[in-house]
Design a binder for these strands. Structure first.
Lengths: 209, 209, 209, 209
DNA sequence: CATGAATGAGTTTTCATTCAT
DNA sequence: TATGAATGAAAACTCATTCAT
């Protein structure tokens, strides 16, 4: 089953790349973005030099500017694409869920996977390198995040209604956001605890049976 | 009561300063640390220049180096002092608590206050500027954090036992860490929700009645 | 008459192009030179990139190097051709003049037209981008300019003799050079003052009736 | 007499420096401006690197930015100060002149001296490096030039009236501007022709006896 | 001939840190 | 202690030029 999930993710990337919504991860530009995300996450945006990125990709530093006008254009691209990609993935999973509880579980699972899986570097960058983005680019990314959060709020409210629970969705989502995004600092993908199990734990923070 | 709490905090600072464990916040050095924390939080460590800090304090950039050997010594001092201070505060509150549940509530309350109150800037810096610290200084701060986390684990375990709940304390504490530290990005000190109420909400994530 | 003059200029270009002395302005290379001259004049040689020129012509930057070995080869060609062309034109007009005064007037007229007419961009480049040329190319262009100046000195001397005036031709020509070439900064081709009228004004600086 | 003139110039600089209108040429900043002007004139603004200037002054390239925020701030300062200085000098000479003819002669003399004397480098830069200035700085300098030109127009008109000549002052001043500024390319300060003699020649271009 | 990705040397600029005063 | 000019290493970015396709 895990293999099916992974295949579905690859199919989605391919389809989004074909539509020009994200960069093909196999292209020169796509590899550059992946390496940059890795470095930005590990060292932080400011402490990562353009030369570092170039060295990681195996090109000369000047060549970077063939693909991106500036260093912070790279940062923006990383953030934009990771939102676009996860947004599409979440929408699909929510649509396929049979109950509101399961839709919320799918979102949690998806966000945990986003943070700890293949897009983990990009998600960390999105969360922790926010202030390194120029103001106008921040506004642009903020617009995308708003859409993303709208999906969360809606799904969460449905799940609470279904469980006959009342709670402040605004507060609850934010507590959960912190809990889930923080997993990047401690969750071990190769450890005993699977993403699905962790997701169940996290769901319990919200929905009490 | 709130006034009493605030007074207690000031007394603690004074007492710690007298022991040389933290810098007197009214001294030149103390004001420098506060301003630096504010700037590091707002702009990030790397994007904050020594000149920025000097300007904020009202001195010349060269003068900073009479107080601190280097820029990252400032960062270390901010992190060290905020841990030392909150550690002492938490120990006292845990000792005074009548039940394990209340001890845990006190910790949560204290961490929320640390993150959103007077030491908010320093706490944010501690969490988000971690990688800007040189490796040897990271190790030093890590030692302090270990003590801090030990207090948390212990208290949490007592509270779970008391409530006849079983859970993975390791996982639970980390989910909570994320949830609480993330409040810095959204919690409004002057809003309707008080720190105590928020703490009660957060406690519910852990202890189910 | 104006049309005849314009036609004569086109005929001259055609004839020089046929002899390989200048580049046919309708050819790809010729259009490149014209666009480059326009940009060099507007922005200066250094601030004009090879990409700017390529974009203006509608080709890719790499393709430029099929026409010219280097960027400063373009600059040299612009300078060389504008001298060659105007030199030929002046020789013809001097030969056709009935009096020395009129020969000088023809030269003035021709230089004003060179500076403000079709070759205005190239002439500006010749005057103001001089130092951007590599030393050996400067020497080459200097040789051409010497010929050009010889024609001026000779004609001027004849005109002064004819008018029974004595003056330092060296100084006078240089004062005039400055006055005429500076017109590029203020003379309005579409204004009330015609080139011929302006030439008469300029002639008065030299020959007093 | 020449020595008196030179002394008067030095006195003026000193007085303007004391008022903060120009930079003291003996200060570090003043020497930097002089060297930069020399290099900008010789090689052009773009081909002169900040390192070139630093080397000429005998400091490190980074130190330049202690005195000027950017390279083009240096260019602006050169242009601004040379106008301010010559403006003051001209105003004084015009005020002291007994006839309108002599006032105009003084202006010509002063401009020739500005172009060929101590401020020759700066004047050349003002004329030939114009486009290297950022647009907003161009506007600022343009304001100063307008004042400068107003003084010229006025004085020229008086001189023409006094000589019972009619002429287009606009055209005449521009022809003269070109003639005078171009002297920088050929006039030899140590040659036989003195500035005063050259000024008399130039005056003849305007006022016919 | 044309393309356009890649090069790599060179540019301006930044900034923590030093040190003579 | 405080100052602020000077340092110098390192940063992001530019761009003429090359070359495989």
């Amino acid at each position: 089953m895990a293999i099916q999930v992974e295949q579905a993710k690859l199919d989605l990337v391919e389809s989004l790349a074909a539509q020009g919504l994200v960069t093909d991860p196999l292209s020169a530009k796509g590899r550059l973005l992946a390496k940059a995300a890795k470095l930005f996450r590990a060292k932080g945006y400011e402490r990562t030099t353009v030369r570092d990125i170039a060295a990681e990709v195996g090109i000369q530093s000047g060549s970077i500017f063939h693909h991106f006008k500036s260093k912070d254009e790279i940062l923006k691209a990383i953030m934009e694409e990771v939102i676009v990609y996860n947004m599409h993935r979440m929408r699909k999973l929510v649509d396929e869920a049979d109950t509101a509880r399961n839709a919320l579980l799918a979102l949690i699972c998806c966000e945990l996977d986003a943070v700890n899986g293949l897009t983990g570097n990009a998600m960390s960058v999105l969360v922790y390198e926010w202030r390194s983005l120029s103001e106008d680019k921040q506004r642009f990314i903020l617009g995308l995040r708003a859409e993303y959060e709208a999906l969360w709020s809606e799904t969460m409210q449905y799940a609470l209604d279904e469980a006959d629970q009342t709670a402040d969705v605004f507060v609850l989502r934010r507590l959960l956001t912190g809990a889930l995004s923080w997993t990047t600092t401690w969750y071990d993908t190769n450890g005993k605890l699977s993403i699905n199990e962790l997701a169940e734990e996290a769901l319990k923070l919200v929905i009490k049976e």
